[in-house]
């Protein structure tokens, strides 16, 4: 039953041919098979949001999805936000506003915020807090995260992000 099966996984625009046990969580496969350890695991029950990735552009929990389920879908992890050496405007704003301390929740925050800004380029504070409510941060008290996202939303034109 725990024999491995082949899987074609598309992550950050790249396709990987790997073998997985059906029970392996997407979070584990991203981290331990593909080495994309920027996706963090905080609770394995969908409560903390640290493992949030984008699946076909939507934020979802990689700890509540088996890797085998997402064949053919586009997965985006934090490593996929940056194509070159430079930080994205959102990442830049996170640094500028001190929106991260220990950094463990940060990838999930960035992915949720990225999806939010695509959907709603100029969110108000309430929308930002609501969107982030499924991503727990234990260090920052959220204020600087909210500030960073609002700053980027204020700065960018409709289609910049």
């Amino acid at each position: 039953m725990n024999s491995r099966v082949p899987l074609k996984l598309t992550v950050n625009g790249e396709t990987f041919d790997i073998e997985v046990e059906p029970r392996w969580l997407l979070s584990d496969v991203l981290r331990h098979q593909l080495g994309l350890v920027g996706t963090h695991v905080g609770c394995e029950q969908g409560a903390c949001g640290a493992c949030t990735v984008l699946i076909d552009g939507k934020p979802e929990r990689s700890c509540l999805t088996f890797a085998i389920q997402v064949e053919g879908q586009q997965i985006t992890t934090v490593e996929g936000l940056t194509r070159d050496e430079n930080l994205t405007p959102l990442q830049e704003a996170f640094s500028e506003h001190h929106a991260l301390q220990c950094g463990y929740c940060t990838p999930g925050m960035l992915l949720t915020a990225t999806a939010l800004l695509r959907l709603e380029p100029h969110p108000n504070e309430r929308q930002v807090r609501e969107a982030l409510s499924g991503n727990v941060c234990r260090c920052t008290g959220y204020q600087f995260i909210v500030d960073a996202i609002l700053a980027v939303a204020g700065d960018t034109k409709e289609d910049a992000r």
Partner: peptide, 9 residues
Amino acid sequence: IGHWAIRNR
């Protein structure tokens, strides 16, 4: 229901 990421799936 839940949070955004939960509602998406």
